[in-house]
């Protein structure tokens, strides 16, 4: 479903991704973990067509991607960005944000779908006509997740989707994502620095450092605290998990 081969991304004379390769099968849930600034968001953004210039091969939902060319994949792929505030339009209400993708794709029954989605992400219905600045950080993050789920795309790119949520709301969102995946066979590529989240939601993970994949492992290896790379071990140790 997602195949990245030898992906290189540069900004000016700084190379931020050095030959990154990874493959995620249909229905699989794959995690990217790694140091802050190591290029995790850049991989997701490149897949979502938000990086203008890159080298390598990327294939997504059956389409070959080309640098600088926009693929029309909205119904196949949706992304939840790391900064919900920046990815929500400041003057569009929650209702506008959630109904818009439905309108664009001529999907009927918008009202009912918007309300059902608010319920699913645990936002009270009276928040429906609020603007982003009238919400708390975690409420905004749930709007961004809800927007990505509106079209029920088979592939989701999730960049730290629960970083602004308290653990009880996080549990609700993770149960929702896991349920959708089982029910509809969705494919996830998920960035997080929270190893227990990987353990709950993912099948495999890649450890990134300074723009390189240091290690790819099964989630069973993570659960047994068996990561091998230097950075993987450091993550385990510092989480107090070894």
């Amino acid at each position: 479903m997602i195949a990245v081969q030898n992906l290189n991304v540069r900004y000016g004379d700084t190379t931020v991704l050095h030959g990154v390769s990874l493959a995620v099968a249909q229905g699989e849930s794959f995690a990217l973990v790694g140091e802050s600034g190591s290029g995790k968001s850049t991989i997701l953004k490149a897949l979502a067509g938000q990086v203008a210039d890159w080298q390598g091969q990327m294939r997504l939902a059956g389409q070959d991607l080309q640098p600088g060319r926009k693929a029309h994949l909205a119904r196949q792929v949706q992304m939840v960005f790391q900064d919900p505030y920046g990815s929500l339009h400041p003057r569009r209400s929650v209702d506008d944000t959630l109904a818009e993708p439905l309108a664009i794709h001529g999907i009927k029954g918008r009202d009912a779908r918007v309300l059902a989605m608010l319920d699913a992400v645990g936002l009270p219905r009276r928040f429906r006509f609020r603007l982003p600045h009238q919400l708390s950080g975690g409420q905004r993050q749930r709007v961004a997740i809800a927007r990505a789920l509106m079209l029920e795309p088979p592939v989701l790119l999730l960049d730290e989707p629960t970083s602004a949520l308290d653990v009880s709301v996080q549990a609700e969102i993770m149960n929702l994502l896991k349920g959708l995946r089982e029910e509809k066979g969705l494919t996830f590529l998920l960035v997080t620095h929270d190893l227990p989240v990987v353990s709950f939601l993912c099948d495999r993970l890649a450890v990134l450092r300074a723009g390189r994949v240091e290690e790819t492992a099964e989630v069973a290896t993570l659960r047994a605290a068996g990561l091998q790379s230097a950075y993987g071990r450091e993550l385990l140790e510092r989480s107090g998990l070894v």
Binding site: S168, V197, S199, R223, A225
Partner: peptide, 14 residues
């Protein structure tokens, strides 16, 4: 609700 490193529950308590 806190998930664990060796998480084997199918759903988390809410």
């Amino acid at each position: 609700s806190l998930p664990r490193l060796n998480e084997d529950r199918a759903t988390l308590p809410v």
